[in-house]
Design a protein around this nucleic acid. Structure first.
Lengths: 114, 114
DNA sequence: TTGATTGTCAACCCCTTGGTTGAATGTGCT
DNA sequence: AGCACATTCAACCAAGGGGTTGACAATCAA
């Protein structure tokens, strides 16, 4: 995963696991405890605990305290970073942007040729 | 990384490395050979070759043949999948969508209460 | 044909990751 | 105090990732 100062890599790595993405999806519905989050999965509670630690280190979730519960909630900040990173590729996968991009490139080429 | 049929995990994993992201960035400027791509990095050519294989398996690049060269080009299709996945979280990180979302939720609540 | 260039394959190393089980910690209930 | 519940810590294991070096294949050029 390389240097720990590479936040974006940490975020992508955290997202590169279906269990963790499912946990995030669940958290879009609101806060949840570790047990809540673990329920749907056929793995041990400890495994889920580890997944949560990965998500927390990536900044994708924040955790509170309520007696013996550690409620988790979504923290979307890193997703904005991902979205920002994606922007530089948007013209390649977004049809509308692609045609706008082509249009502008053509325009520039024609102006340069004059 | 879990099952090989999990395309999205493969894509996120491929993106979770700064060297590979730098390679993708370079490819936005056009096709390039393995040597071209390797030049900026302080690692062996074989290491880059492995990175390219990861990107290829994730569908992020496609490779041609031209004599002894294997030109690489960007394939943005998986990035669209990532963007689609991100959409379900957009309301959490996009300010404008967040307020629109709140507005719609309030509206719905009020209608339910009547 | 011989040599130089481009790139991949194979074997190996070390470290990380996702999973396990078992023990420990912290907190509320009675 | 003692029990039950929620969660984490610790130790371990198998598998995979990113790196290396050395050998190999394929193609052009002399």
């Amino acid at each position: 995963m390389m240097a720990t100062n590479d936040r974006l890599s940490e975020v992508f790595a955290a997202l590169a696991d279906p269990t963790r993405r499912a946990i995030l999806a669940r958290l879009t519905e609101g806060e949840a405890t570790v047990n809540d989050l673990a329920a749907p999965f056929p793995v041990s509670l400890q495994a889920i605990s580890k997944h949560l630690k990965v998500l927390e280190r990536a900044g994708l979730i924040a955790r509170g305290r309520d007696a013996q519960w550690r409620p988790c909630r979504l923290d979307p900040a890193p997703l904005r970073d991902v979205a920002d990173w994606m922007e530089q590729y948007r013209r390649f996968w977004d049809e509308r942007y692609a045609s706008l991009d082509t249009y502008l490139k053509d325009l520039q080429t024609r102006e340069t040729e004059q």
